[in-house]
């Protein structure tokens, strides 16, 4: 699987996320409060809403449409109305660049 240079570490505030589109797919990249980076599919599994307008609280991302929540580290669905887990992607940081291993 290729590692793709997605963004700079400065592009995402701590405890926040951005949308990243690549090769026809949309992703969400997160900067956790303890400084780590994570990536998931960009659309909520409930109704295909972009998660980038949602709220990061600790290790959770809350969807902007119906307040469903996922643990963005594992993709686990944590709060109704989401029931289906979110797909996650490996992330590595080299220097000030964030790389995502896209499938």
């Amino acid at each position: 699987m290729p590692w793709i240079d997605a963004c700079s570490t400065d592009d995402i505030d701590e405890e926040d996320l951005i949308r990243w589109d690549h090769a026809g797919q949309t992703f969400a990249i997160y900067h956790s409060p303890d400084g780590a980076f994570f990536a998931t599919a960009g659309l909520c599994t409930h109704e295909n809403v972009h998660l980038c307008d949602g709220l990061v609280m600790g290790n959770l991302i809350e969807c902007p449409k119906h307040n469903g929540q996922f643990d963005y580290r594992t993709g686990e669905a944590m709060r109704a109305p989401v029931c289906v887990n979110l797909r996650t992607f490996p992330v590595k940081v080299e220097g000030d660049r964030v790389f995502v291993e896209v499938a």
Partner: peptide, 10 residues
């Protein structure tokens, strides 16, 4: 009703 309200918002 949690679910009916989700539909009300969508």
């Amino acid at each position: 009703w949690r679910w009916s309200h989700a539909r009300h918002h969508s």
